[in-house]
Amino acid sequence: MPKLPILGDTSSISENGLAGFDHNFLTGKIEDLVKWSRTRSMWPATFGLACCALEMMATGAAHYDLSRWGMEVFRASPRQADLMIVAGRVSQKMAPVLRQVYDQMMEPKWVISMGVCASSGGMFNNYALVQGVDQIVPVDVYAPGCPPGPETLMHAILQLHEKVENGEITRRRQEMGAGAGIMVEQRDGQTASKVIIGKRE
């Protein structure tokens, strides 16, 4: 039997089968491997807006320790981040900024809408807030609460991990027609003018 450089001495394979290998190895589909590595090194972008940002920071700090899932590396630059945790209320003035940050993130990217204000406007149903961040960016997981406690956020993150592990790896959300790009008329009550947020020409 020829000697394979990777496997080392293979002479005992014929006698002992796979148990005769010198090295341990795993078998699996490349797709699973990609998905597995994506979930184990998901870096969030710092997108703290309001109250929820404090709970997001608390989740990252010593007591709740987000690094147990390899996620403590909050990236200040959206280009290095995989996940945007929209933590807090999104105002009309902030909405274009949020969309721009999202656009600057590299695919694949995910969004967690943290707290009721980001998810639906929460208790502030008025002229100033975007009623749900899913009108601007596609949201993968909604975390309920005002603000969601660190446990809720961790649960949301684990849900997202599960989603990534069980989803497709080459899906592009723009083609799927998901969330992003929806034109929203934000009624400000008095004037006929409308703020259009969404896909730019």
Binding site: Q92, S120, G121, N125, N126, Y127, A128, Q131, D134, P138, R173, M176, G177, A178, G179, I182, R187, D188, G189, Q190, T191, S193
Partner: peptide
């Protein structure tokens, strides 16, 4: 922005909550 939000003749700008299908 047009209008002055805290004036009393400026509507709160409430958007009724509608149940709709999640996009995508």
């Amino acid at each position: 922005w047009e209008g002055y939000p805290l004036r009393k003749d400026y509507a709160v700008g409430e958007i009724p909550v509608q149940f709709k299908e999640a996009p995508g």
